[in-house]
């Protein structure tokens, strides 16, 4: 017996295809070019800021320049512009061996989706950085647990024990309140 869904999906495809309006390959090129430009500009701004900050920090009231003290210019700039240690990404990753996701928090929330069959899981979240990091764990689109990690420069990690009743998804939402924090996470079946 033919599968009746085949014809329904064929109809869906036939009805929808004419309505798809691709932005175009050129638009993709513009997007990639724009992002590369933004990255380069941001890098240039950091370099300029580092240099400027370092020069200002070394200048005495009489205009003379003294040699740098103990803190390096790059560490100082990192503290000022990005906040937190320069190696915070590595610190967070070290707290979560085998992490599937890791990044540095931007100003917006990070929403990570993880597939999961039914069963018990341990979600390990590590962070290193200057701000508290609120973590929301959702199981099959329902809030399961919420906790704020008190991130430090030396890093902290928390384990969340999760039960997934049936095959579905686990979402981990990291609040943008934790901007500049480095994080790493891993979902492990028990």
């Amino acid at each position: 017996m033919p599968d009746p869904l085949n014809s329904l999906f064929d109809d869906l495809r036939r009805d929808t295809l004419p309505q798809v309006r691709p932005p175009g390959a050129e638009a993709a090129r513009r997007t990639v070019h724009r992002r590369a430009t933004v990255r380069a500009a941001a890098l240039a701004a950091v370099v300029i800021a580092v240099g400027g900050t370092w020069i200002v920090s070394q200048r005495n009231l009489d205009g003379t320049i003294t040699p740098a003290a103990s803190a390096s210019a790059s560490t100082y700039a990192s503290d000022m512009l990005w906040r937190g240690r320069a190696d915070k990404t590595e610190i967070a990753a070290a707290l979560v061996p085998g992490a599937s996701h890791s990044d540095v928090m931007a100003e917006h929330d990070q929403d990570v989706g993880l597939e999961a069959d039914g069963g018990n899981y341990r979600l390990r979240v590590g962070c290193a950085g200057p701000a508290p990091l609120p973590v929301t764990v959702m199981v099959n689109e329902t809030v399961d647990q919420q906790q704020t990690l008190q991130c430090t420069d030396d890093g902290v990690a928390r384990d969340f024990e999760i039960t997934v009743p049936s095959a579905g998804s686990v979402r981990v939402i990291l609040s943008g309140i934790g901007q500049f924090d480095a994080y790493a996470l891993r979902l492990e079946k028990l």
Binding site: T16, V20, P22, A25, A28
Partner: peptide, 15 residues
Amino acid sequence: VYAAQFADLTVQLYA
């Protein structure tokens, strides 16, 4: 590849 695949992929994700 873009021309050949964009619409088809979009239909899948639309569904």
